[in-house]
Write a protein that binds this DNA or RNA. Structure first.
Lengths: 220, 220, 220, 220
DNA sequence: CATGAATGAGTATTCATTCAT
DNA sequence: AATGAATGAATACTCATTCAT
């Protein structure tokens, strides 16, 4: 599935390194400061390009922001495509949770921007993305649940949509909790770890899997 | 538990109606536009007070924002205090989920602002709140889990912190899904309801409860 | 000679201590921050009185400022009245220089405000003072020079006005040099004292007197 | 000696006429209203440039102010460099006094701003200038006194620093007296000229020179 | 294609003054 | 007489975007 096109033709024609650099700097800036507080002039300077160039690549600050998110969606899609539904539901789910956990480490900025973009103030902006990300994820869950119920691994009476929604909620929050300062603090408080301690990642993953298995797993 | 004090003394002294009006307008503005995009001058005009007055009540835009969130924490605390831990774990949990669901309808703006405040760009700001909200919630979960394990309603081998964290993740996302445009769209896509359809709230609550029961409930 | 009246009648009627406190705080504030940068509300708070009271004593910030300067003129007048012209010109001049030197220490704020008020930006304001201070000083010089020339201590061919102007220039700058940060630094640089050293006050006074004696003293 | 750099690089790159115009307008505004009462937006409008441009040339109002003073220091330095110490002390001194007198006419605004900047309220600001102006002047005096004492024109027992300080005090006040409204009035009162009359400039210069000659000149 | 100077509406915040209590 | 809440024009400064070179 092709992402929206938020950049101008010129952006396709320039040196890939320059292209990557611009997106990387934009990602870092938007991630740490948010859409509204990020300055385009400052961003251009940090990327080592002129304001004029930036505006020849992107029609507006908004478009640049969306382009960054779109790139993030590509990344997600690539990661998800590695999941093989034929490997069994819970095996896939565990892979998914682990992937989410690692994505938070590898692309914290993408997660932070994603969080930023879900904000009510940016809803008009986000509408232009037409929920591409969730569409991709939803599709994967559909296939996983279909296969799981077909194979008898999952109970036949559960509604895949509602189950997928709840599962993904856990996964999204897990990702936020490992990539944003706010949710990290929240996690530590909820889990109840002290100042020196660390949250036990395996316990977390087990808990998520246990919830899925308990609610959706067959014969119990 | 007393909230931080983000307003000036003068704010305590004015007409309660005026006070409520200011907070209400501020809540609406911050909720719909986000912290950065909300203008103080505009806000004052909408509240029908002068800029000077607003600044005599709050030292800065930041303080006003925090005051609004703090008021929201009061509201949450009040709601949570109605939960009676002696009523049994799953009964309480269901009450909690229902409460969250209704809070999203009754105070959508509070939820939107909460979401906004968890954004990375506002992490410095949010730090001043010292996670009061999560502390309150965490405390409730502690009591619920302790009572549940004591009564034998819950398995003795689960770690209450991790369980609470996962449960609250579900509840938080439920609230976002019913109060923010972005997460509502996401929910509809994940659940897979069509254009005319509505998400079935009871199914959602059941799903959350089933996940909790399956993972944490005793003898199964 | 009566000073202008820059306060309202109410100010005459209040407790003298309150009166003195207000003027003292005003003096300190205006001296350190200058007219424009001094805030009336802040000043009132520091003086422990209400803004309303302050405005019942003085019609405007401007009037308060002028009242402070006027009080300073009283002080100067009192000091100058101690000079006895019959004691001989150079003896009086030395007394005058010493007085100036000590006034800089005792009333640094008055000097700083005086300097501030001579600024071009405040010329309209200062016009309301009608140069009361200089009139007082000029009158003293007239008497000193008249007595000095009558007694033969001073050369008969010097023009008292020009001589007085030059002498007073030296004295004014001496006062600035001991009461304002800027002119203190300037003095140290011009005199050429090092970091640990102090400017030798006696040398300074001698130098001023030598210049007067050399130019205006009879036979030599 | 190079002045501090208070402008941004962009200011070096623009049309010299534009540059001069901006500084000229800034000089006029700051001179007549003082630092605090001068508005940047107003100033930009008067200079015929946009606020944004002004801020692309100078980082702050403070910097613009200092840039104007710095330009004034250049002017002073240029003027002082015309004095030839080998021409004899008193000849140089007379040239210096005449120069000061004419500088007051040619650059009244610079003098007014200089006066403004010596104000206690601007001492923090002025500190950034590190007394460049006085350093230049002091250096010239050092050379003049050294030459004068070497040639026997001056008494060997006078301390050049103290003498220079007193002399420069006379010169500074002379300049103020011919460039600021306040000090002009003061001069007229001290000298004692009537309403139609003018202060006799030659008498003034003679008086200053007489004071120098009487105190510092050899044999007499 | 690239540049970066120029723009000016918009921002949060201050402050002298008024006036109802 | 004393208070201090209320006012709103004014302030210094920012920033997304344009466009001439």
């Amino acid at each position: 599935m092709e992402g929206g096109k938020f950049h101008r033709k010129t952006f396709d024609r320039i040196d890939p390194e320059r292209r990557a650099m611009i997106l990387r700097v934009a990602m870092t800036e938007f991630a740490s400061k948010g859409f509204a507080a990020t300055g385009i002039n400052d961003l251009a300077r940090k990327a080592g390009i002129s304001i004029g160039s930036l505006y020849s690549y992107f029609a507006s600050k908004e478009d640049l922001y969306l382009a960054v998110i779109d790139m993030g969606s590509d990344t997600l899609e690539r990661e998800l495509s590695e999941i093989d539904p034929s490997a069994g539901f819970f095996s896939c789910l565990e892979a998914l949770v682990r992937k989410a956990r690692h994505a938070a480490d590898r692309y914290p900025e993408l997660n932070q921007i994603y969080l930023d973009s879900t904000t009510q103030g940016l809803s008009a902006l986000a509408a232009r993305l037409s929920n591409r990300l969730e569409a991709v994820t939803a599709k994967l869950y559909r296939r996983l649940f279909a296969a799981g119920q077909a194979s008898g691994e999952l109970r036949p009476d559960i509604d895949p949509g509602y189950a997928a929604f709840c599962l993904d909620n856990l996964i999204v929050m897990l990702q936020f909790s490992y990539s944003s300062d706010y949710y990290r603090d929240r996690m530590r408080i909820m889990v109840g770890v002290g100042d020196g301690e660390e949250v036990d990642e395996d316990k977390l993953v087990s808990c998520v899997l246990a919830m899925a298995r308990g609610a959706f797993g067959a014969f119990r």
